[in-house]
Design a protein around this nucleic acid. Sequence first.
DNA 1: GCCATTTCATATACATTGTGTATGTAATGG
DNA 2: CCATTACATACACAATGTATATGAAATGGC
Lengths: 105, 105
Amino acid sequence: MAKTHLGEFEIFVLSALLHLGDDAYGVTVSREIEDRAERTVSIAAVHTTLLRLEKKGFVSSRIGEPTARRGGRARRYFRIEAPGAKALAKAYKTLESMREGLVLP
Amino acid sequence: MAKTHLGEFEIFVLSALLHLGDDAYGVTVSREIEDRAERTVSIAAVHTTLLRLEKKGFVSSRIGEPTARRGGRARRYFRIEAPGAKALAKAYKTLESMREGLVLP
DNA sequence: GCCATTTCATATACATTGTGTATGTAATGG
DNA sequence: CCATTACATACACAATGTATATGAAATGGC
């Protein structure tokens, strides 16, 4: 059980959650990644990944209160949980030790 | 064409090639990753990944001369090519910008 | 009040990566 | 020659990555 190696996109999503704090839901997570990774990201991709991370206990979610904004279905807010943060830290650490000493173009 | 987003393991493999220089073939790549990432890695996983990277033009390979060593089928040596190095650099850069400012456990 | 428009989530499907098990090939020392 | 060593390759399946399509809910203008 718990193969739980984080994939690259999972790393992105978890990182975005940390950056966003209390304001992390599908749309904002997607934008955060787009800004930082400089590429387009579909909201659905983000959601799929978030749900998978939730199944593993790496994130939790709650349905938000309706806002005064125009549209919508209720937002689902996500938060990173301790095991998720730990896995993320480990993933970055591993990447760093793989990178160590490399001279890249 | 060229979706070419590197996955995490592909990042590992390409990094190992750079670390190993002229001595990169299945077994050494596998060991290099095991040492740095501190986990077990099957040689077959490495080979599969290397062949896929070769198809994308990220690495090249050549069959080595038979050595004086005891066993074996001829080694297949791998080398990273410019597009691979470029993709790797980009992947690391992206990861860094995702990580930037995060406080991790 | 209705509906076009906006904002968001969910479902589903398929492509790509990740990774093991099983098998094959070749060399050599005894 | 054959057991052992050192490697590669084939294949299969699981996990991740990512898009298209659809549905739900709110609101403001008419």
